[in-house]
């Protein structure tokens, strides 16, 4: 498995990274960001959407802040899983990502920006050539989606980042930096429903950090992850819930691993605002389940993964009350 050659740029400041990106854009060059590389490099080895330039964010110290209210995108998951500075839910969730070896390299920003995954996409070049490519990596052929042929222009590859569900449930804000400046938004707005586009990042823009309001320290949360093995595996479904104990309206739920984006479930919580006993929690969990839709492109069946959203959500809520 030989990776195609690329030029690696190693800026040491946000400013330099942005400038590098701007230069490459101006000269019409394609590039990718990399930080820990645990997502990008395997894809590159499979020759999936490779670019001639890669800008590494790993050397930017400004992006390694770590506190209850701010975590830099460059912080490694292995740091999060042992940190007492951050919210315990994030500590737990980070410890559930992939394997200890991968967490030594993988970063929070990389996990948030994880490429969407699909049975028809995460394959070698020979393999993908034999299905005449797919919508997400069409190699210029305009190939159709192989999961749901003849549907529309959307890509249905699944978002399987772990951290997003917990970040959503803790009400995180995300900060992006790019040639057009800095912008900040609630993390659920960062994701965009299309397995190809994935998120709102513009060309040259990257995730700089996530921040939380002061109230986050009062929150109690839980993350339930569905996977076949207790290591390595991406979430086949995941649900995180957090609240300020005693305040029913403070409940926030985030789910991941089901669709092309992670979801926030404010609407369902609003409709079941009085979730104070076993039955109502069950109903709320059912409502969360109904609001998501899985497709057949990961290892477990979509019907099952969807059904598990309810179980995981209920268990997450039960753990925090």
């Amino acid at each position: 498995m030989l990776m195609p050659a690329f030029e690696l740029h190693k800026p040491v400041s946000i400013e330099e990274a942005v400038a590098l990106a701007r230069d490459l854009i101006d000269s019409g060059q394609e590039f990718d960001w990399v930080s820990g590389g645990t997502d990008l490099i395997p894809n590159y080895k499979w020759h999936i959407n490779t670019k001639p330039h890669v800008i590494s964010l790993a050397g930017i110290e400004e992006m390694k802040s770590l506190s209850m209210t701010e975590i830099g995108a460059g912080v490694k998951l292995s740091q999060l899983e042992v940190s007492d500075e951050i919210h315990p839910l994030l500590k737990t969730a980070a410890g559930k990502v992939a394997s200890s070896l991968i967490r030594k390299s993988a970063t929070l920003g990389g996990n948030i920006c994880l490429d969407t995954r699909c049975f028809w996409y995460n394959q070698s070049e020979d393999w993908r050539r034999s299905i005449e490519w797919c919508h997400k990596a069409d190699c210029g052929t305009g190939a159709d989606c192989r999961v749901i042929p003849n549907q529309n222009t959307l890509c249905v590859a699944t978002y399987q980042g772990d951290m997003a569900a917990s970040l959503i449930s803790l009400g995180a804000m995300i900060t992006l930096v790019g040639p057009d400046g800095i912008r900040e938004m609630p993390i659920e707005d960062f994701f965009e429903l299309d397995g190809m586009k994935k998120n709102v990042l513009q060309k040259g823009e990257f995730v700089c950090k996530v921040t939380f309001s002061e109230e986050v320290s009062k929150r109690v949360g839980a993350y339930k992850k569905l996977r076949v093995r207790e290591t390595w595996d991406f979430p086949e479904a995941g649900s995180a819930a957090s609240w300020i104990p005693g305040d029913l309206s403070s409940l926030r739920i985030g789910t991941t691993g089901i669709e092309s984006i992670p979801r926030s479930h404010c609407k369902e919580i609003e409709q079941h605002a009085n979730w104070n006993d076993e039955d109502s929690i069950f109903e709320l969990s059912q409502a969360v389940q109904k609001s998501v839709k899985a497709v057949n492109n990961t290892i477990l069946s979509p019907r099952y993964r969807k059904a598990m959203v309810s179980v995981l959500t209920r268990r997450a809520i039960e753990e925090i009350i």
């Binding site: 207790e230 595996d233 290892i299």
Partner: peptide, 21 residues
């Protein structure tokens, strides 16, 4: 899969139990 392709010709998706299992 549906097209007869082996969908999990890799050690991530061909799921050999880990030490945890």
């Amino acid at each position: 899969g549906r097209t007869g392709h082996l969908q999990n010709a890799n050690l991530l998706q061909y799921q050999i139990p880990s030490v945890h299992e």
